[in-house]
Design a protein around this nucleic acid. Structure first.
Length: 951
RNA sequence: GCCCCCGUAGCCCAACAGGCAGAGGCAAGCCGCUUAAAACGGUUGGAGUGCCGGUUCGAAUCCGGUCGGGGGCACCA
């Protein structure tokens, strides 16, 4: 790294803004802000109550995980951005809530504990301290009273409380909202709701009643197949599995396995989670990812009668039913065995039998082969395969007998686990039909220039009519679908249906460092929620943290959570309203996402011991504000900034919890995050030598576009910043070399927040020079005295100033910190040019410049503001306001285009109307010459912009 | 394979809603300061917007195609 910045030599003026001075100022103002609670934002009610203006702003960074590795310069990018935005808004008088807590449960501390025996809490707390010391160095205006960590017992007590609220709720499809489970019990007790087997509620045993109630809960135990990851010793959620079927964390193989696990019924909210995306100010990219993940599709269930039953098929293209040439069941489909005849029909196609003598053998062999395929095989080998079951079903739309197959590209878990084969409009079906020699009937007319195989596009239906009058011919997809669904419903052959890719959320992990479940099991093994006054369920100390992980490839292993080993904690005697009895605690812990599902709510009311968040405080900070955000405003945090990697997991789970809590009456808002911005990443160059090893990037020098390390040529790569690439630059070293303000200014100047860009240490000097020049315009470098005087600025100065104010305000408000910084440099350059050689800088220019600098470089701004004679910190403003008078010019210069090319310029009074501008333009010497006395074909005057003359 | 985003000066980036391609920074050149250099201050050039075509009086901006980079999804019927 070039070390020019710190090397202040003897000749450096004594009072120059150097990194040393910056550091001193920064520490001093950080202490001042802390001592004065400068960033404390009052709440309407409760422990943090104070006078609150109606105008508020809640800014939030995505919950950081306090890793022990320390920060590099990429990490604080979004933190600086939110801080600048928060500071600007605070200065213009808003009540701004900005803080930062820690998502502190999770595997790294636990794995460290496994290796060293150090309690995860010890590691976690040390890491949080380390993290805090790094971010505090950067001068963020966080409300320190609102810092929380998910590992705080007082915090996870409420996480457990929310879990119980969700557990004790059910989804009422009629009202389309969650309701307390007690209301369901009343419905059953009053026989307003039928029991599954039709008996009266009072005829059921207590256990039977409980089983029915439990089956409705938003949290339930399921024996369904889950993703078992032996390498981690725990199960993981669908969302935590990568495309190639491995765990996101650790990259271990994941196996489908039937285990009894806690699930959360997020699918009940699928529609609202999709629909309400339209109410959010989020990047389209994230909305699209959520829509795809939820994967709602509209289609129909179609009944295909078989000899003595019927097969239900889900299709999104019921309009193609006339082109149906077969059915396929998933290998695990329960009806396979039912419909299989003992022998092949006569004349069966040999491609259908897999060479087996009888259907049962063919299917058994196929099933075995399918189960042996790993996820990876399935994806890499897309060759369609399948075998005939020997059975036929009837296509209801035309009465044709179609063969029923088994094929592994049909999944059990989606739709009905059975599909119809319409090769003309689906490429997968086309491929399958080709492999098995099925006919292909197009039912949608492709365009003339179409030369592909299956045609999935829109077009008029063809070959889609039957004798008794049903016809789709000529209809386009939408109409054809509607028509056929109506026909199916009228004739009892099926019904319209919505289907989702979204599955319920696997909510338990067999680990140690997480929130314990507030659930115990009674002697019959039935789960019992703990009453609220039994919270918190505190995570006990355990003799060992190892969750019993296994050979990552051994699918035949069982989870054995660390908590199960603490018998004195697991076995408890409690009074749950039936006298003291023995119970066994649940030994799972919640997934890491639990704590981050609701932290914005706790930021609002961090020390409230009565409720998780007071309704008045919730309404104030994240309540709906239709007057500002439109009648459909769902409420939520005003600005949420974080990485796009949380697009599905965290953001979907958090929205789900928020909606449940809203339904149950605990929250007025319907969404947690009204506006979301994804910051770009700071990436960096890395360099490898001839052997392919990484060399320290900071010691590489560039000569004529080639890169050298120790005189040896190296090659450049571009990627993430990290230890393994030996290209880490830390905020610590930037603060050391330039000061935090320079670092902040540079990070913001690099480009728009949303854009990823390469780190370039050599460019930081530009921000440093700017701050030095600005400093020099206010402070005499040689004496340290103020060099500001109460002299009147010129008209030109005022124009420059007010133009800058108007622009900077707008840029700050729109999160365009790069251009805001540029405008400040521009204004400062004007001051340097005009007053650097003069006696002093006019106060009327210096003060607004310092104030406008404050959001970006708060320490130097505070210091200069103070030296300018102000005793009050500028944290709460004032912020300069632009005077319209100086924004309008008396005259303006119009470029004159001839046929779109600029040929001349003319200056006219700003007040000139179009005709006057036109006259002036045509009268201009060179234009007049070009016209040569003739009339132009057309003259376009764009007021305030230009004149275009068409010859 | 499908979908989305981005290509402006040697580099990072500006250009409001189609209207003079340049605000700002880095690097480069020159000048000043200096015995000299660094640092500092001043100052100067430099792209016609990846490419092809279209719409328009006028396109970096809108449309179609194409190339390059990044990201998401990937048998979801």
């Amino acid at each position: 790294m070039s070390d020019g910045a710190t090397s202040s030599t003897d000749q450096t003026p004594e009072y120059r803004y150097t990194a040393e001075l910056a550091g001193e100022i920064e520490r001093r103002w950080q202490a001042h802000w802390a001592a004065h609670g400068s960033f404390n934002a009052p709440n309407p009610v409760g422990p943090l109550a104070g006078g609150v203006p109606d105008d508020k702003l809640f800014v939030q960074d995505m919950f950081p995980y306090p890793s022990g590795a320390g920060l590099h310069v990429g990490h604080p990018l979004s933190f600086i951005a939110t801080d600048v935005f928060a500071r600007y808004n605070r200065m213009i008088g808003r009540n701004v809530l900005h803080t930062m807590g820690f998502d502190a449960f999770g595997l790294p501390a636990e794995q460290y504990a496994v290796q060293t025996g150090t309690h995860p809490r010890t590691t976690t707390e040390a890491n949080i301290e380390r993290y805090l010391s790094q971010i505090r160095m950067l001068g963020f205006g966080h409300d320190e009273r609102r810092r929380i960590a998910t590992t705080d017992i007082e915090y996870y007590r409420w996480t457990q409380w929310i879990f119980l609220r969700i557990y004790n709720a059910w989804y009422d499809d009629e009202q389309d909202r969650a309701r307390p489970i007690s209301e369901l019990e009343i419905q059953y007790a009053q026989d307003k709701r039928r029991t599954p087997d039709g008996r009266n509620w009072c005829e059921l045993t207590v256990a039977e009643q409980r089983e029915i109630i439990d089956s409705h809960r938003l949290v339930y135990l399921s024996d369904a197949p889950v993703n078992w990851c032996p390498g981690l010793g725990t199960v993981v959620a669908n969302e935590e599995i990568t495309a190639d079927g491995r765990s996101e964390r650790g990259n271990f193989p994941v196996f489908r396995k039937n285990l009894r696990q806690w699930m959360m019924r997020i699918t009940a909210y699928a529609d609202r989670l999709v629909d309400d995306l339209d109410r959010l100010e989020w990047p389209e990219k994230v909305k699209t990812m959520q829509r795809n993940w939820i994967g709602r599709s509209y289609g129909a269930n179609v009944h295909f009668p078989t000899e003595d039953d019927r097969i239900e098929v889900f299709t999104t293209r019921p309009d193609t039913l006339f082109g149906n040439v077969g059915l396929i069941l998933a290998p695990e489909h329960p009806m396979v065995d039912e419909i299989m005849p003992g022998a092949w029909p006569s004349g069966v196609d040999e491609r259908w039998t897999g060479g087996a003598a009888r259907p049962a053998e063919a299917v058994a062999a196929y099933r075995q082969a399918a189960s042996r395929k790993s996820e990876l095989d399935r994806q890499e080998n897309r060759e369609k395969t399948g075998v005939f079951t020997g059975a036929y079903a009837t296509n209801p739309v035309n009465g044709k007998q179609v063969p029923v197959f088994v094929a592994d590209y049909v999944l059990t878990g989606y739709g009905t686990g059975a599909i119809g084969v319409s090769p003309g409009e689906d490429q997968r079906d086309w491929d399958f039909a080709n492999v098995l020699g099925l006919p292909i009937i197009r039912t949608v007319q492709p365009g003339e220039d179409f030369d592909g195989e299956a045609y999935a596009g829109d077009g008029p239906s063809i070959n889609s009519s039957q004798e008794n009058g049903l016809s789709l011919d000529g209809m386009y997809i939408d109409e054809a679908k509607q028509t056929i669904i109506q026909w199916l419903e009228e004739h009892g052959y099926g019904e319209g249906r919505r289907e989702y890719k979204l599955r319920d959320w696997l909510f338990a992990r067999q680990r140690y460092w997480g929130e314990p479940f507030p659930i115990v099991y009674d002697e019959d093994g039935m789960p019992r929620p703990l009453p609220e006054d039994h919270l918190p369920v505190v995570l006990p100390d355990v003799p060992e943290y190892t969750p019993t992980s296994y050979d990552p490839n051994d699918a035949d292993t069982e989870p054995n959570p660390p908590l199960a080993k603490t018998t004195d904690w697991v076995e408890v005697e409690l009074d749950l309203g039936e006298g003291r009895k023995k119970y066994r605690r649940d030994t799972n812990v919640m997934p890491q996402w639990a704590g981050s599902c609701w932290y914005q709510l706790r930021y609002i009311d961090p020390v409230n011991s009565e409720v998780f968040v007071d309704p008045d405080n919730e309404r104030y900070w994240i309540g709906k504000r239709p007057d500002q955000h439109g009648s459909n405003d769902p409420g939520g945090v005003d600005l949420y900034v974080g990485g796009v990697e949380h697009a599905v997991l965290h953001l979907l789970y958090s929205r789900f919890w928020h909606k449940v809590l809203h339904d149950l009456g605990h929250l007025s808002s319907e969404e947690p995050y009204r506006r979301l911005v994804n910051q770009g990443y700071i990436q960096a160059y890395a360099f490898t030598d001839s052997r392919g090893f990484y060399v320290p990037a900071e010691e590489v020098s560039e000569v004529d576009g080639e890169f050298y390390y120790n005189g040896e040529k190296v090659s450049r790569e571009y990627g993430k910043m990290g230890k393994s690439l030996k290209n880490v630059v830390t905020p610590d070293e930037m603060c050391e070399t330039y000061g935090a303000d320079t670092f902040r200014f540079y990070e913001m100047a690099m480009g728009p927040l949303e854009v990823s860009r390469p780190w370039a240490t050599k460019d930081v000097i530009g921000a440093y020079r700017f701050l030095q020049r600005l400093w020099r315009n206010v402070i005499d470098e040689n004496t340290g005295e103020l060099r500001v005087a109460d002299v009147d600025p010129t008209e030109e100065d005022l124009r420059a100033l007010h133009k800058a104010i108007a622009a900077v305000r707008e840029e700050f408000a729109e999160l365009r910190f790069n251009t805001a910084g540029a405008k400040l440099i521009e204004l400062n350059n004007h001051l340097t040019k005009t007053y650097a050689a003069a006696e002093a800088t006019p106060r009327a220019l210096a003060e607004p410049l310092v104030l406008m600098l404050a959001p970006l470089c708060p320490h130097s701004a505070e210091e200069l503001w103070n030296r300018l004679g102000h005793d009050e910190s500028l944290v709460h403003g004032p912020f300069p306001e632009a005077d319209e008078r100086y924004l309008v010019e008396d005259t303006m210069e119009y470029p004159i285009q001839v046929n779109g090319k600029v040929r001349a310029r003319v200056t006219v009074p700003t007040s000139a109307d179009d005709d006057e501008v036109r006259a002036a333009a045509l009268g201009e010497e060179r234009i007049a010459a070009l016209l040569n006395g003739g009339e132009p074909r057309k003259v376009i005057v764009v007021p305030g912009r230009l004149v275009n003359v068409v010859l």
